[in-house]
Computed example of a mutant assay.
Amino acid sequence: MQILQAGDFILDKIKNELPEHFHYHNADHALDVYTAAKQIAAGEGISGYDLDLLLTAAYYHDSGFLFGQANHEESSCKNARQYLPQFGYTSDEIERVCDIIMATKMPQNPHNHLGQIICDADLDYLGRNDFFILSKRLFSELVITDHLESELEWDRQQVKFLHSHHYFTQTALRLRDEGKNEHLKIITTKI
């Protein structure tokens, strides 16, 4: 498996072909999830072969946005199946990558440890210091894709989402849960 080459390939494709209105679900997000997945995996004791599959899934998990927002996880798996063989991935490895990708479909429902890690990595920003910057990017994207009409409506959606969200891994809980709860308090005072 040539992970870095496979990652560079899909990141380049996203940078060059993704519609401009995806202010959040873009190459920066893929790299962000890759970095968070690596950090959480280290905390969870994941290494070697499993880490390789996880990090590949992180690179590819939202590449389906190249085809649009609807069912983007399935489209991400289509990309993985199309492009990963040229980077030395077997069909079994690709199906494992797709299984990890599909864990990120909302509502998140991972059925193994690698799925839990990618779910936590995908929403790592909820508890980070750059939450409000990334939240603003996501809002500007949703104004176009979901016809979101106001920041107040967005704040209400975020409060509902943050209330219902939970991290799966002990590492993410330790690193991000407190920050996420602080962000929830700040948004709640605004509405």
Rank of each mutant, 00 (worst) to 15 (best):
L31I: 14
I46S: 11
K13V: 05
Q108L: 08
E182N: 10
I118P: 04
S150I: 11
L173V: 12
L66G: 03
T188G: 10
N71H: 09
S140H: 12
L175M: 15
T90W: 09
S91N: 09
H72D: 05
S164R: 12
A37Q: 05
A121T: 04
I3T: 00
K13D: 05
E17D: 14
H25R: 11
E141I: 04
L54C: 13
C77D: 07
K38Y: 12
A42P: 06
T189P: 00
D177C: 06
G48K: 15
Q69M: 12
Q158A: 04
N26T: 09
N181C: 07
Q5V: 02
L31P: 02
T56F: 12
R156E: 11
M102D: 03
H72L: 04
L184K: 10
S140G: 00
D28R: 11
R156Q: 12
E151K: 13
Q69S: 13
L184F: 13
K15P: 01
T90S: 15
K38C: 02
W154G: 00
L54D: 09
V97G: 02
P107T: 11
H113K: 14
A37S: 13
S150A: 11
H163R: 15
G7E: 08
R137H: 12
T145S: 12
V159E: 02
L162R: 10
G45E: 13
K78D: 02
S135T: 05
N16W: 03
N129M: 03
K180H: 06
G115K: 02
H21P: 02
K190M: 13
Y24I: 04
L54H: 09
T171P: 03
A172D: 09
S140D: 12
L53A: 04
L173A: 07
S164V: 07
F22N: 02
K136G: 02
